[in-house]
Design a protein around this nucleic acid. Sequence first.
DNA 1: CGACGCTTTGACACAACTCAACAACCGTGG
DNA 2: CCACGGTTGTTGAGTTGTGTCAAAGCGTCG
Lengths: 232, 232
Amino acid sequence: MSKRELSYLTDLQSKPLRVDRGKELVHEGEAGQTAYIFQSGWACSFKLLPDGGRQIISFPVPGDCVGLRSMLLRTSDHSLSTVTEATIIPIQAARVKHMFNEFPYLGTALLWATSRDEAMIVEHLVSVGRRNAIERTAHFILELHDRLELVGLAADHKFHCPLNQYVLADALGLSTIHVNRVLRQLRTRELATFKAHEITIHNIAGLKALAGYASPEESLVVVRDGIERDGF
Amino acid sequence: MSKRELSYLTDLQSKPLRVDRGKELVHEGEAGQTAYIFQSGWACSFKLLPDGGRQIISFPVPGDCVGLRSMLLRTSDHSLSTVTEATIIPIQAARVKHMFNEFPYLGTALLWATSRDEAMIVEHLVSVGRRNAIERTAHFILELHDRLELVGLAADHKFHCPLNQYVLADALGLSTIHVNRVLRQLRTRELATFKAHEITIHNIAGLKALAGYASPEESLVVVRDGIERDGF
DNA sequence: CGACGCTTTGACACAACTCAACAACCGTGG
DNA sequence: CCACGGTTGTTGAGTTGTGTCAAAGCGTCG
């Protein structure tokens, strides 16, 4: 990246903004919204159903950037709320659009970044579609751990996690009560503990085995031991 | 787009290629793969689990382009197989990369295109996570219908659909047998029929009501009637 | 005609959901 | 400092949706 591009990127960022928890930053179907970088605090992107149900798509954590892609579209296809109090850096749509014209190469760079997001959503879909409650929860914990470790927010198989069981349920596609039961099982089986907003992984190997989890680096090693199903 | 860009795009396309059904075009974790445009025939992208299970992510249909994005990454994060015999137009990775340098604006264009894909995957996630079997199936039929209508492959609430119940099950996160039961219910309730590789929608309003389906155009109208859940 | 792939059915088991209540926790205000 | 209310977590009992197993019906194609 050239110096000029970099300085432009820095200029894009407005002053950090402090927002309360539970604040809806982007509303589904809303037009012309801004993007945000999360400096601290957690959020969740989700869609609501007519019956009041909710499916959480992803949890942006500190260091994550949200909504950049949807600035190119007319409207956002899902909502975004903070889960905790947070400090965010808003990025104005107009300036980003201008930037795409000025430095078209950045489109490709952004494309690369969004690919990672999509891979996460795909993995989430696999979890919800084909793993049972406990595998799904285990997988979720492991993924969260790896993401947070990457930004220095997890160490020693322990990390802060401000999600309550209602939120967890909406992410995993389960009922709150069942989430509770599953967490108890993980605790009893001495795999992981979720207590006082802190998740501790006691037996990471066991948890990975249970979840069928492939670490980001290992994910090149393709799991595909036999079993060609009929149909394709 | 300039004339030069357009001609470059046309040059990218190799000769159409005919492939058998059930052929795996991209293998998960594979590096340096090519992208494809589907001229005819259906495919499915999916991930396999250690236990032999499979979650289908999406069904590329004629007119769709797959794998463009993953060419920028080192490896593909999911596999791709044809579901029927198909004619595809391969696109070489090397040439696309060169093109991104030559016409950096195209990165942004592609970004726009992939956003649509991601929106579809998100909707799929919502279905699997928060809709029951029959709602999920109804939603799937409606989405397929709208996609195919867009490319002239559906008319009169009827369209050809080469998927069998095994494949459907892997897409919807259900067992084959349950898919069968659900299809029977849709038939009995005179909402839709899936017979001889052809889907007919008898009562599109009823089906939409059942699925909680928002048509692409209507999706701006946000469904959010009350019910603020606790937790966020 | 037989074989194979796909669909359909029934009986049963189990995972996950619902409802209803209670217990722990936490910040607030008296 | 303690009592309070609200939020969140925990349990149990009973129900329902979906999965599993087993077997039979169809169509198609060689």
